[in-house]
Simulated scan of single mutants.
Amino acid sequence: MSVEFALEFHGRDADKNRLDLYDASISYNGMARVISILGHYYVTGDVISHAPKSVVQIYLYPPEAGSFRTTVAAAVIGGVITVPFAVLVQRTFDDWFPRPDPQMQQVIELLQEQNKLLRQEGGVAIEKTEEEKNQEVRADRFIEEKAPDFLTLRGITANSFKDIFRPVGRSADYVAMTSGPFRTPISSIDESAAIRIQSERLDQKIETIVGVVNNLSRSSKTGIIFSEERGRSIPFQDNIPGRLPPEDDYSWSQHFRRKIEITGRFVYWFDGRVKRFLVENMRRLED
């Protein structure tokens, strides 16, 4: 089953039915990676950091004539939760987005009216049914119960998530995001919201984490460490100057499933939740 998500850019070059090619390619690549990783979690319940390993295939449809609206489709089969994938993505993004300002709220309200018209044309109830409302409640409950996983997913996809909005403020004024054939609104992001999504705060407090590395990218010096004490996986970025040496401690921990100790500082999102851990020192914990 394919689940559709659409990005519709407005203003500037987008109103001339064009976008900067570099901006657009970064945006679609970011969307593909985020949906791939969320889709893999939806199907398997496993958190991955490499999108090519996802069990979900992502397809790009051509832009619609007369607008710069492009649809991305995810081929999703099954799931660890009994709500549609589109609903889970919508509620997840809603949790990750900043609250819309009055101008963007007006755009969202227009999208909601458009959604009602399309539902009516499709022979579907204009207002959300009780089952659709229950699906949203179940999705919110699932996200709350699996909060550590979704915090990790948010950290893993952070760079790709902000890339989705690359054209905003450059070749477009804002982007509207919808899902499904009836264009159910997810959100609308303008330049100020895109800046907030990218913003972060570095904690000045030095902390220590003991855990086992689950994922590692040597080229970017990033990965995920699971801490039993904190009860969750934490994205980290090595901030020690230079390249990782051969047989580094992160690789040792990942390969042998042994604990390491990392010291550094937390980086927080605009909403105060943990984004990643910047490592300033590390060492192996031998028996």
Rank of each mutant, 00 (worst) to 15 (best):
A32T: 15
N281P: 01
R273I: 01
Q204N: 13
R283T: 09
G122N: 07
Y22V: 14
R196H: 01
R232S: 12
K116S: 06
Y41H: 08
N239H: 10
P84W: 07
R91T: 11
T129W: 02
D94A: 13
I225D: 00
I262D: 00
A24D: 10
F68N: 08
V83A: 03
K221S: 09
F266N: 14
V47N: 01
F93N: 04
W96G: 00
Q120F: 07
D140Q: 14
V76F: 06
S171R: 09
G30T: 12
V274W: 11
K162I: 15
G11P: 02
V210E: 10
L38V: 13
G272F: 08
V267E: 00
R69W: 02
G231K: 08
E191N: 01
G122W: 02
A125T: 15
I260T: 01
S253Y: 06
I195G: 00
V87C: 06
E127Y: 10
Y174N: 03
T71D: 02
T178Y: 07
Y42R: 09
I189N: 02
R258H: 03
F85D: 05
T178V: 09
F270E: 04
G122R: 10
R258K: 13
M1E: 13
N115I: 11
R18Q: 07
D287V: 14
D238H: 00
V124L: 12
R230H: 07
P185S: 08
N214L: 13
S160H: 15
R257L: 05
P181Y: 11
Y22P: 02
V56A: 07
F236Q: 07
K128S: 12
I48M: 04
F256A: 02
R276I: 03
E127F: 08
Y59I: 12
I35N: 07
S160G: 08
R230Y: 08
D13K: 15
T178I: 11
D249Y: 06
H10G: 01
S179A: 15
V168G: 04
T263R: 11
R201N: 07
S67P: 03
P245G: 06
T44Y: 00
K275C: 00
Q120H: 08
D238Q: 02
E261R: 09
I262F: 00
W96R: 12
I35W: 09
V87F: 01
N215F: 15
F161G: 06
L278Q: 14
V43I: 11
I189L: 04
V47F: 05
R284P: 01
V43E: 00
K275Y: 04
D149S: 12
Y22T: 15
N215A: 13
E200W: 06
E136G: 02
Q57G: 11
E131H: 10
R69M: 11
K116D: 05
E191D: 04
L118W: 03
F97G: 01
T70G: 04
S171P: 01
Y59S: 09
Q103K: 14
E228V: 09
